[in-house]
């Protein structure tokens, strides 16, 4: 005991609590509140218990969106992480080109998300867009507004273009932090460049890559603006990812209870998967 004199400290964290309450807790509790009730407007609510949760978890529509979401996130991670590491490895380590490369790499990250969506929308239009016209001119039957495969390919290309830079910058930071002595020792030990990558560069990049993968996972799982501007979820529902589905349900159908339950399930899935990723990637460190 004897710690009562420190109770004053609570007073100093109070502002933070108030802020967190307003921007996170209160909205979240409102969603929880909606998720267990039914409303027909006029501010009249009926308690429904866990009915919406059961419906969401058993609905084919939710399963399909979740599957699309997992496919999207899995694909972009599988492309962006190796590609980002490869680009970071081939960037110059010192000299005047370093800043040129860094600025070029940072450019896509500076563009607002809806602008990225609009850019790619026009760029890929099959009749007037540079990319769309070119692909069709080369003999590919490409039309992202009508063919699911074209829509998916465009969506993934757009995300790779927009976000690989983030992985590159993080990986490059990790690489720059490796002291020269490691490369010199590897040279003396007669290591091949593959062995240098395998035993020096990748292990030293592990921490930043963990962060990169987590960030890309969470961001891509939440992605809304870009696919909404590019395809609006179509053709049909083929590119309707979780967030697009959620917005359709909440604002399109005004199905507040179902949408609230889905939000909570969505949030818990992200939390769970992030934790699994993090635990898997930091497991090794705890062992040594």
């Amino acid at each position: 005991m004897g710690k009562t004199e420190n109770q004053k400290a609570w007073f100093f964290v109070l502002p933070v609590f108030v802020l967190v309450a307003f921007n996170a807790l209160i909205p979240l509790m409102a969603v929880v509140n909606y998720s267990v009730q039914e409303t027909f407007g006029n501010n009249v609510f009926f308690f429904e218990g866990l009915k919406w949760f059961e419906e969401v978890l058993h609905s084919d529509r939710f399963h399909a969106s979740l599957l699309r979401q997992l496919a999207f996130t899995g694909t972009i991670l599988a492309i962006e992480v190796p590609l980002g590491v490869a680009i970071a490895l081939s960037m110059p380590r010192r000299g005047p080109w370093v800043s040129v490369c860094l600025v070029l790499m940072a450019l896509p990250l500076l563009i607002p998300w809806n602008v990225v969506g609009a850019m790619w929308n026009i760029f890929a239009l099959p009749d007037i867009g540079l990319l769309g016209r070119m692909l069709n001119g080369l003999g590919f039957n490409y039309n992202y507004t009508q063919q699911p495969f074209s829509a998916w390919a465009t969506l993934i290309a757009m995300d790779v273009w927009h976000w690989t830079s983030l992985v590159v910058l993080l990986a490059y930071a990790g690489l720059s932090a490796i002291p020269d002595a490691y490369y010199q020792a590897a040279k003396i030990d007669g290591a091949s460049s593959w062995a240098v990558l395998r035993h020096i560069q990748l292990p030293k990049m592990k921490r930043v890559l963990t962060i990169a993968i987590l960030l890309r996972f969470m961001d891509s799982f939440n992605i809304y603006t870009e696919p909404f501007v590019l395809t609006g979820g179509g053709p049909g529902n083929t590119t309707t990812l979780l967030s697009i589905d959620l917005v359709k349900m909440a604002l399109g159908q005004f199905d507040l209870g179902r949408a609230a339950a889905m939000s909570i399930v969505y949030f818990l899935i992200i939390l769970l998967l992030s934790w699994i990723f993090y635990a898997a990637m930091t497991r090794e460190e705890g062992r040594s």
Binding site: A181, Q184, A185, K187, I188, G190, A191, H199, I200
Partner: peptide
């Protein structure tokens, strides 16, 4: 360097983190 038959120990210890001590010594 790798053809000169020299070895060098640096100011800050260089070990291959992911390997065991045995594998580190066996690496060259």
């Amino acid at each position: 360097t790798d053809k000169r038959r020299i070895a060098q120990v640096f100011q800050f210890p260089v070990v291959y983190d992911t390997m065991t001590v045995y594998d580190n010594l066996a690496f060259p």
